[in-house]
Measured scan of single mutants.
Amino acid sequence: TETREFDNEEEARKEAERLRRKGQDVQIRKKGNRWELRRT
């Protein structure tokens, strides 16, 4: 599992969408005042 953190939700969602188009399974969750993007 690979995780990346983003400062805002929009960036996290854009990156998640990009990875999903490549066929990756991605989850986003709020972590304090940041957003965590998890690739499984």
Rank of each mutant, 00 (worst) to 15 (best):
Q27Y: 10
L19D: 02
A12P: 00
A12T: 03
T40G: 10
K14W: 09
E17Y: 04
N33K: 04
R20P: 01
I28N: 01
N33V: 02
R21I: 08
E17P: 01
R20Q: 08
V26Y: 09
T1V: 12
E2T: 11
L19A: 05
R29F: 11
A16Y: 12
N33T: 04
E36D: 00
Q27D: 09
E17W: 04
R18N: 09
R21N: 11
N8V: 05
I28E: 00
K14I: 11
D25S: 12
E11N: 07
D7W: 06
G32K: 04
R29P: 02
E5N: 07
E36P: 03
E9P: 05
R38N: 12
R13M: 13
W35P: 13
T40F: 09
K14V: 10
R18S: 08
K30W: 02
L19F: 04
T40R: 10
K22H: 11
E17A: 11
E11F: 03
R29S: 12
T3F: 12
G23F: 03
R34M: 11
K14D: 09
E5Y: 15
R18M: 08
N8A: 03
D7V: 06
L37N: 06
E36V: 07
R13L: 14
N33Y: 02
K22G: 11
K30F: 04
R39L: 15
N8E: 05
F6M: 02
R20L: 06
Q27F: 08
L19N: 03
K31F: 03
F6Y: 10
K14Q: 12
D25G: 07
T40K: 09
T3P: 11
T1L: 12
E36L: 05
E10I: 09
E9H: 07
T40N: 10
E9K: 06
T1W: 15
R18Y: 08
T3E: 07
Q27S: 11
I28M: 05
D7F: 06
L19V: 04
E11P: 02
G32T: 00
R4T: 11
Q27V: 14
W35A: 02
R13D: 05
N33R: 02
R4N: 07
D7T: 08
E11T: 06
R20F: 06
F6Q: 01
R38M: 14
E9Y: 15
Q24F: 15
D25T: 12
R21K: 12
K31V: 14
R21G: 12
T1D: 12
K31R: 10
R39V: 15
F6H: 01
R34Y: 10
D7M: 07
K22R: 11
R20M: 08
R34C: 13
R34K: 10
G32I: 00
T3L: 13
R13Q: 12
E17T: 07
Q27G: 05
F6W: 04
R20K: 08
E17K: 08
R20G: 05
R4L: 14
D25Y: 13
F6E: 00
V26L: 03
R34E: 06
E2R: 11
A12V: 04
E9I: 13
W35H: 04
K22V: 11
R21T: 11
F6V: 01
K31G: 02
R20A: 08
K30M: 04
T1R: 11
E36R: 00
D25W: 10
V26P: 03
E17N: 09
T1G: 12
R13V: 12
R4A: 10
W35T: 02
R21C: 14
A12M: 03
A16G: 06
A16F: 11
K30N: 05
D25A: 11
A12L: 03
A12S: 01
G23V: 01
K14R: 11
T40D: 08
A16E: 05
R13P: 00
N8M: 04
E5K: 06
K30Y: 03
R21M: 12
R4I: 14
R34G: 09
R18H: 09
E10K: 08
D25Q: 13
R34W: 08
R29V: 15
K14N: 10
K22F: 12
L19E: 04
G32E: 06
T40P: 07
T3V: 13
N8F: 06
E10V: 08
E11D: 14
G23Y: 03
T3S: 11
N8H: 05
G32Q: 02
E11I: 03
R13S: 08
R21A: 14
T1E: 12
E36K: 00
L37S: 06
Q24V: 15
A16N: 01
R29C: 14
R21W: 06
E11H: 04
E36Y: 07
N8Y: 05
Q24I: 15
R34P: 00
E5M: 14
F6A: 01
G23N: 03
A12Y: 01
W35D: 08
W35G: 07
I28R: 01
I28V: 13
T1S: 11
Q24H: 14
T40H: 09
N33I: 02
Q27W: 06
R20T: 06
T1Y: 15
L19S: 04
K31Q: 07
R34I: 10
R20S: 07
K30E: 03
Q24N: 09
R39W: 15
E11V: 05
F6D: 01
E5F: 15
E9Q: 05
R4D: 07
E36T: 01
G32P: 00
L37Y: 00
E17G: 06
T3M: 11
K31H: 09
L37E: 12
E9S: 03
E11R: 03
R21D: 11
N33Q: 04
N8D: 10
K31D: 04
N8W: 03
K22T: 12
R34H: 14
K30I: 03
W35Q: 03
Q24D: 10
R20W: 08
R38F: 15
R39S: 15
D7N: 06
L37T: 11
T3R: 10
K31W: 00
L19P: 01
T40M: 13
L37I: 13
R34N: 11
G32V: 00
E5R: 07
R38I: 15
R21Q: 12
D25M: 13
N8T: 14
R38P: 01
T40I: 14
A16P: 00
E5P: 03
L37V: 15
R18P: 00
D7E: 10
D7P: 06
R18W: 05
A16L: 10
T1M: 13
N8L: 06
K31I: 14
R38V: 15
T3G: 09
N33E: 10
R34D: 13
E9N: 02
K31T: 09
G32H: 01
A16Q: 08
E2F: 14
E10D: 11
K22P: 03
V26G: 02
R38G: 13
G23E: 01
W35M: 02
N8Q: 04
R29H: 12
W35N: 05
L37A: 04
Q24E: 13
A12N: 00
E36I: 08
A12H: 00
E11W: 03
A16T: 02
L37G: 07
E9M: 07
A16D: 01
E5V: 14
D7A: 08
Q27A: 09
V26M: 05
E15L: 04
F6L: 01
R29T: 13
E36Q: 04
W35S: 02
D25L: 13
E2G: 11
G23W: 02
T40A: 10
Q24K: 06
E5I: 14
E10F: 11
V26F: 08
W35K: 04
K30D: 00
K22E: 14
N33S: 05
Q24C: 14
R20Y: 05
R13F: 12
R29W: 06
W35E: 06
N33P: 15
A16I: 03
N33M: 04
K14S: 10
R18K: 10
G32W: 00
W35R: 02
E36N: 00
R38Y: 15
D7C: 13
R39Q: 15
K22Y: 09
L19K: 02
R34T: 03
R4S: 08
T40Q: 10
N33C: 11
E11K: 04
R13K: 12
F6P: 01
E17I: 08
T1F: 14
E17F: 03
E10A: 11
R34L: 06
R29E: 10
V26E: 00
E11A: 08
R13I: 13
V26S: 05
R38A: 14
K31L: 09
E10T: 09
W35Y: 03
